[in-house]
Write a protein that binds this DNA or RNA. Structure first.
Lengths: 112, 112
DNA sequence: ACCTTATACATAGTTTATCTATGGAAAGAT
DNA sequence: ATCTTTCCATAGATAAACTATGTATAAGGT
């Protein structure tokens, strides 16, 4: 009866990068971040709230993002997260590291 | 003074896939598996022994590999791991899942 | 003979990130 | 009234990788 669960676990270590990337489009609240990532990834990447909110706290502590309470278009209170300049640098670094590693994995998986 | 450490952490969840893939070339011992992955990845992926040996035990328990003691070309005793047919199927499944996820990540990181 | 390096296996304990499972609260629709 | 959706948040469990450590032997240099 239920629908088939597409099942979409995240690769540990990629969540922070995806969140930072999402915030380059502008400030957004947690729920919106989760929805955006899920939609853009065609429902493959599912960001669980139990993973997201702790991650957002970590990002804030490290200074990659700031946050403030605001109101959504739905007239709901929500905490909006905003990328800091430091966060932007971090995103570039993480993105480069990610590419380096996935390319290395590709060399193992598809040897010449 | 030491050499620059290239630093190459693995993405959690990829180690088993890389090991299974390595064993498609033929039976090999743990130390050799680590060396192979490191070399083919151009020193980007470093397989720590503290990660590898527990992983090999997990693979064996699940039936993806078997093992037996043998002697290397260096005249040393070593435990050789061999991919099972089940392991080969598992590799195909993990590889497909990995591609699905990395492609989804790419959609988030490089939106059209 | 001795010492060092490289090879080879293995475990214990820590860290860290994600997940599951909950819980609360308010808006809007039926 | 009640239900669904939106939105936040935490506690506890799970799992994979890491660091550190220990053992042992072969080969090669001095």
């Amino acid at each position: 009866m239920g629908k088939e669960s597409t099942k979409g676990p995240l690769m540990p270590g990629t969540l922070e990068m995806l969140v930072l990337k999402t915030l380059t489009r502008g400030p957004l609240h947690g729920y919106g971040i989760a929805q955006y990532i899920r939609q853009v990834s065609d429902d493959v990447l599912r960001v669980e709230e139990g993973s997201l909110y702790p991650a957002l706290q970590r990002l804030q502590i490290k200074g990659w993002v700031t946050s403030e309470w605001d109101v959504t278009g739905n007239n709901r209170r929500a905490r909006y997260y905003r990328l800091t300049p430091l966060g932007r640098k971090q995103l570039a670094a993480e993105s480069a590291a990610y590419n380096r590693i996935t390319e290395a994995i590709a060399r193992v998986m598809n040897p010449a």
